[in-house]
């Protein structure tokens, strides 16, 4: 990615970094690496940041001047050597999901609509490696890319009042995981026993922008077993570094 982003003011205390407007894995990768790099190397200046597909925003501490900070950001940006500094921070997680009753509320509807078996829906959903583009919408909610169009299905006409934490859903061509109990309009195809947002951890969200994940089908008994292990703190999430 040779093209440089624009770096500009976003309100009284914000800085916006923008690449060309499209959902593109290469753009997103570079954006995420730079954003994580800048957030660490300039942590004294900022009170947080947000990453999306092609833009990230930095929110400066109140006493920091935006104009001066933009100059510092540009300078830091030009100094960064990403290949060396940030390759190791991207992780692939294996996410166990039970695609059975009582969790898979809408999987049969999708199978019927797509004229394929439920097993085929599961196979398609577990086949791919999904990039985590960013966390938004709810605390810990991952925006995942790359779902197969073969199982794409529109959002429910009216949202459910309550979706359980860990629920795995499909909305249009997107798939995602509900980290906490909330109302929601996604089609629920299963549930993961993992805790995706733990307020007691230093980094509450399990996933971050730039990570990847693969879903793995488990049966109900295994779900219960992992759920217990997660509760007691003995479950070890399977993960490896993404190269």
């Amino acid at each position: 990615m040779k093209k440089k982003p624009t770096i500009s003011r976003f309100g009284d205390h914000g800085i916006l970094i923008r690449y060309p407007e499209r959902i593109d894995n290469k753009i997103h990768k570079v954006l995420t690496q730079y954003t994580h790099y800048l957030s660490k190397s300039l942590s004294d200046l900022i009170d947080g940041f947000t990453i999306a597909y092609h833009e990230s925003a930095f929110y400066l501490k109140r006493e920091v001047s935006v104009d001066e900070a933009i100059e510092i950001f540009v300078k830091k940006f030009n100094q960064a050597n990403l290949a060396e500094e940030f390759e190791e921070t991207s992780i692939i997680y294996r996410i166990p999901v039970c695609y059975e009753a009582p969790f898979a509320l809408d999987i049969e509807e999708i199978a019927t609509e797509k004229k394929i078996s439920v097993d085929k829906v599961i196979k398609i959903h577990t086949q791919r490696l999904y990039p985590v583009y960013f966390i938004g919408f709810l605390p810990g909610f991952p925006y995942l890319g790359g779902m197969s169009k073969k199982i794409a299905h529109p959002r429910k006409g009216s949202p459910r009042k309550k979706v359980e934490p860990g629920s795995v859903g499909i909305a249009g061509t997107q798939t995602g995981i509900y980290p906490c109990e909330s109302p929601g309009g996604w089609n629920i195809i299963g549930r993961s026993p993992l805790n995706f947002f733990d307020i007691h951890k230093e980094k509450p969200s399990l996933l971050k922008a730039g990570d990847h994940l693969r879903f793995e089908a488990i049966d109900y008994a295994t779900y219960k077993q992992i759920e217990e292990q997660v509760k007691s703190g003995s479950y070890i999430i399977q993960k490896k570094i993404y190269k």
């Binding site: 990453i51 966390i135 509450p204």
Partner: peptide, 8 residues
């Protein structure tokens, strides 16, 4: 502050 990248 500092948790917006985690959707907070």
């Amino acid at each position: 502050i500092n948790f917006r990248n985690q959707g907070v």
